[in-house]
Design a protein around this nucleic acid. Sequence first.
DNA 1: ATGGCAATTTGTCTGAGTAAATACCGGAAC
DNA 2: GTTCCGGTATTTACTCAGACAAATTGCCAT
Lengths: 273, 273
Amino acid sequence: MAALPPADQHQLSRKPSPLTQLARGPSGAVSGLKARDKALRLHGTIARKLGISIVSGRLKPGALLNNEIAASEQLAVSRTPYREAVRILAAKGLVDARPKVGTRITAQSQWNLLDPDVLDWMFESEPDLKLLTSLFELRNVVESAAAGMAAQRRSAAHLKAMRAALDGMAVHTLSTEAGQQADLDFHTALLDATNNPFFISLTNGVNAAIRTTTIFKQRTRPLRRDAIPDHERVFDAIAARQAAKAQRAMSELIELARLDTPVSKRPARNPAG
Amino acid sequence: MAALPPADQHQLSRKPSPLTQLARGPSGAVSGLKARDKALRLHGTIARKLGISIVSGRLKPGALLNNEIAASEQLAVSRTPYREAVRILAAKGLVDARPKVGTRITAQSQWNLLDPDVLDWMFESEPDLKLLTSLFELRNVVESAAAGMAAQRRSAAHLKAMRAALDGMAVHTLSTEAGQQADLDFHTALLDATNNPFFISLTNGVNAAIRTTTIFKQRTRPLRRDAIPDHERVFDAIAARQAAKAQRAMSELIELARLDTPVSKRPARNPAG
DNA sequence: ATGGCAATTTGTCTGAGTAAATACCGGAAC
DNA sequence: GTTCCGGTATTTACTCAGACAAATTGCCAT
């Protein structure tokens, strides 16, 4: 009777051991690119697991999680790490825990969608096209403006860092990890030049998230287009302190990046049949 | 000896009681506007306390917190809520906890500056002018773009909601709580019209934070300028589906709001004389 | 240099007890 | 009879306490 929690069937086995095995993600092989790789503990693992269930829609807003005792023993962990996981989710606005009522999944409008972890979780389960489009839309607005600001405020040091990053991209190409890092360095240096910590904070998370999809992109098919010239145009405008031109160039760069991003294979979540 | 943590001298008294008294913020009188008023527990109280210390600069990036046992008994609480507080801070990127090394305050570039709680904490301790300017800069970029998008995508329902909010502003004026709420409703409806969840998530938090400073503004001096006409201009442009005009109008609105925002009393250190 | 060992710190477990918030129920007032 | 009020019961998250495990650093001996 009663609340009928969404009840992740999961639960693994009951034995006192199995928790560790699901723990540290794709440990052995694949990963190694994500800077966010710091060997999650139990609480982090659980938060991630629940977080993905929530942002992917498997657990719906308004629904109640099982109570602490039930939920934690379903996951075969003690209450301590489970509670800490809930704290993490609550800190990101995904759930709301209160005595007597339980832990409820909040409305999407409450979520901190720009939190790096939340973004990461969204892209974990093949985000639909609509969401990706929305994210690129934001990125276009913010980072174009950032380019304009950078053109006005950049120092010689900023310029030098961007030049170095561009050279790195040229040398390694975007299909290598080093090349991707150089690309990220370029954007970081640009953001740095805006001298606005909010822009930096915002774009950091967004770019990291998009980068993970870029990895998929590189795996599935080669880049249709060489990104270097677009970056060079942005650089030139910033070097020349031409704000409007820098803004336009960045906008084009991002639009092209969006077009090169693969459409999600699974737009929604239900059809499957 | 050894690491010499920054060691909040604080500690309150040692007795087993004092924790509750510092708990629920300015409970009695002043507050009552903030929707985020849900009676913090111990972990939330501690997270807030530490969070403010961090974002205000009293605890500096790179510094180590005391270890769990010492820190928790300094605060006169058990390890459980202290650990949960650290989890909250870690979820927002403010600290990084790892075995054997301790809990370290991360570099500012790692912080989720746009997290509503973090913003709230920043404005708790008289943010300096530079920060406020940066935040308005971001808001201008984002919300102007949002206005442009809204002009293209708004439905009749969106328009109706915005109209109602504007009427509410006119009736109650911005010096009342109802008027402030109507103002917020206007922006919320506009954001809703963009149909972009990221814009909504981002601006929600930012506006809420700025609103708290607006309260101060209203207390210290009357509005220098009537905000209604500015809002009307935005509304008209959106109603007419004129994106560029809506964007410009919103940009002006925000710029004027910025000018009406009081300069922090304590920008850095200098006297008022 | 390299390997293992020890120390420190966070992480996890257990079980008990507290506090908050809802739902329920009985009684009083209308 | 109905409605409203206040207390009580129950459910749930929250806090406490203390022990043990795991991880990582740095030292030390080889």
